[in-house]
Amino acid sequence: NQASVVANQLIPINTALTLVMMRSEVVTPVGIPAKDIPRLVSMQVNRAVPLGTTLMPDMVKGYA
């Protein structure tokens, strides 16, 4: 199973992502692939993302 990107903490709306905010985990449904973590750094979330939430492409500005 492919690992997805999961929030390692509460990420407030419009926050630029950093490595410490994200972890990889095998979850259902599948979200953004963990291999894309380096690409996500500095991108902003367009909503508040609670701890443990799988990041989906529509949550990150400029990803999709």
Results as ranks from 00 to 15, higher is better:
residue 8 N to D: 11
residue 5 V to Q: 01
residue 28 T to Q: 13
residue 50 P to D: 08
residue 62 G to T: 06
residue 58 D to G: 11
residue 41 V to S: 04
residue 35 K to A: 15
residue 62 G to S: 11
residue 44 Q to P: 09
residue 60 V to C: 03
residue 57 P to S: 14
residue 13 I to W: 08
residue 23 R to T: 06
residue 5 V to L: 03
residue 23 R to D: 05
residue 41 V to I: 13
residue 45 V to H: 01
residue 39 R to P: 03
residue 7 A to Q: 00
residue 49 V to E: 01
residue 1 N to K: 11
residue 53 T to A: 10
residue 35 K to G: 08
residue 37 I to N: 01
residue 15 T to F: 06
residue 3 A to Q: 12
residue 26 V to L: 14
residue 27 V to I: 10
residue 56 M to V: 11
residue 18 T to W: 03
residue 33 P to F: 06
residue 50 P to Q: 15
residue 32 I to Y: 02
residue 47 R to F: 06
residue 58 D to P: 07
residue 63 Y to C: 03
residue 61 K to E: 13
residue 31 G to S: 02
residue 17 L to Q: 00
residue 5 V to D: 00
residue 4 S to N: 00
residue 32 I to R: 01
residue 20 V to C: 04
residue 52 G to F: 05
residue 23 R to C: 04
residue 62 G to D: 13
residue 22 M to E: 02
residue 9 Q to C: 03
residue 20 V to I: 12
residue 46 N to V: 13
residue 5 V to M: 02
residue 3 A to K: 09
residue 48 A to M: 14
residue 43 M to A: 06
residue 10 L to H: 07
residue 7 A to C: 04
residue 36 D to N: 06
residue 54 T to D: 01
residue 12 P to D: 12
residue 17 L to I: 13
residue 27 V to C: 04
residue 18 T to A: 11
residue 49 V to L: 09
residue 60 V to K: 01
residue 20 V to M: 15
residue 58 D to Y: 12
residue 41 V to D: 03
residue 12 P to R: 11
residue 13 I to E: 15
residue 12 P to L: 09
residue 11 I to M: 05
residue 4 S to V: 02
residue 30 V to T: 15
residue 50 P to K: 12
residue 30 V to A: 11
residue 32 I to V: 08
residue 62 G to K: 07
residue 59 M to Y: 11
residue 35 K to Q: 12
residue 55 L to V: 07
residue 59 M to G: 03
residue 17 L to D: 00
residue 39 R to C: 04
residue 18 T to I: 07
residue 49 V to K: 00
residue 44 Q to Y: 11
residue 19 L to A: 12
residue 20 V to S: 14
residue 41 V to M: 13
residue 1 N to V: 11
residue 31 G to R: 00
residue 64 A to G: 10
residue 24 S to I: 14
residue 27 V to W: 03
residue 11 I to G: 01
residue 63 Y to L: 07
residue 18 T to N: 06
residue 38 P to N: 15
residue 14 N to M: 09
residue 44 Q to S: 13
residue 60 V to Y: 01
residue 61 K to S: 12
residue 54 T to C: 03
residue 18 T to L: 08
residue 7 A to M: 06
residue 3 A to E: 08
residue 14 N to W: 14
residue 1 N to Y: 14
residue 45 V to K: 00
residue 46 N to E: 11
residue 30 V to I: 13
residue 52 G to K: 04
residue 23 R to N: 07
residue 62 G to P: 05
residue 40 L to V: 07
residue 10 L to C: 04
residue 37 I to F: 03
residue 57 P to T: 13
residue 37 I to P: 00
residue 57 P to W: 08
residue 14 N to F: 09
residue 2 Q to T: 13
residue 64 A to Q: 15
residue 44 Q to V: 07
residue 5 V to E: 00
residue 30 V to W: 07
residue 57 P to K: 08
residue 20 V to E: 14
residue 29 P to L: 04
residue 28 T to K: 15
residue 15 T to Y: 09
residue 15 T to M: 07
residue 58 D to R: 05
residue 49 V to M: 06
residue 45 V to L: 09
residue 41 V to T: 09
residue 3 A to H: 12
residue 31 G to M: 02
residue 32 I to H: 01
residue 4 S to Y: 03
residue 12 P to Q: 06
residue 60 V to N: 02
residue 40 L to E: 01
residue 17 L to A: 00
residue 55 L to H: 01
residue 48 A to C: 05
residue 14 N to C: 04
residue 20 V to F: 11
residue 25 E to F: 07
residue 53 T to E: 10
residue 63 Y to W: 13
residue 10 L to K: 13
residue 2 Q to D: 08
residue 21 M to I: 03
residue 49 V to H: 02
residue 52 G to H: 15
residue 64 A to V: 11
residue 19 L to Q: 09
residue 4 S to T: 04
residue 9 Q to M: 13
residue 23 R to M: 07
residue 9 Q to N: 08
residue 17 L to H: 00
residue 15 T to C: 04
residue 50 P to Y: 10
residue 24 S to K: 10
residue 34 A to D: 14
residue 7 A to E: 00
residue 5 V to N: 01
residue 16 A to L: 15
residue 12 P to W: 05
residue 58 D to E: 13
residue 10 L to W: 14
residue 26 V to P: 10
residue 39 R to M: 13
residue 46 N to G: 15
residue 1 N to T: 12
residue 9 Q to S: 08
residue 45 V to G: 01
residue 57 P to M: 09
residue 62 G to A: 12
residue 30 V to K: 11
residue 43 M to C: 03
residue 1 N to M: 12
residue 11 I to L: 11
residue 34 A to Y: 06
residue 48 A to W: 10
residue 21 M to V: 05
residue 15 T to Q: 09
residue 2 Q to K: 11
residue 3 A to N: 11
residue 56 M to S: 11
residue 60 V to E: 00
residue 41 V to Y: 07
residue 29 P to N: 05
residue 37 I to G: 04
residue 24 S to W: 08
residue 44 Q to K: 13
residue 26 V to G: 05
residue 35 K to I: 08
residue 59 M to T: 07
residue 19 L to G: 09
residue 5 V to Y: 01
residue 40 L to I: 11
residue 58 D to F: 12
residue 42 S to I: 03
residue 43 M to Y: 07
residue 31 G to Q: 02
residue 60 V to D: 00
residue 53 T to I: 08
residue 59 M to I: 06
residue 2 Q to M: 14
residue 31 G to D: 01
residue 49 V to R: 03
residue 3 A to L: 14
residue 63 Y to Q: 05
residue 55 L to S: 01
residue 29 P to D: 08
residue 15 T to I: 09
residue 17 L to R: 00
residue 22 M to G: 01
residue 21 M to L: 08
residue 9 Q to T: 14
residue 56 M to C: 03
residue 50 P to A: 10
residue 22 M to I: 13
residue 14 N to G: 15
residue 22 M to L: 15
residue 45 V to Y: 00
residue 17 L to G: 00
residue 19 L to M: 08
residue 39 R to Y: 10
residue 30 V to E: 12
residue 1 N to L: 15
residue 27 V to D: 02
residue 3 A to P: 14
residue 45 V to N: 03
residue 30 V to H: 15
residue 58 D to M: 14
residue 21 M to P: 01
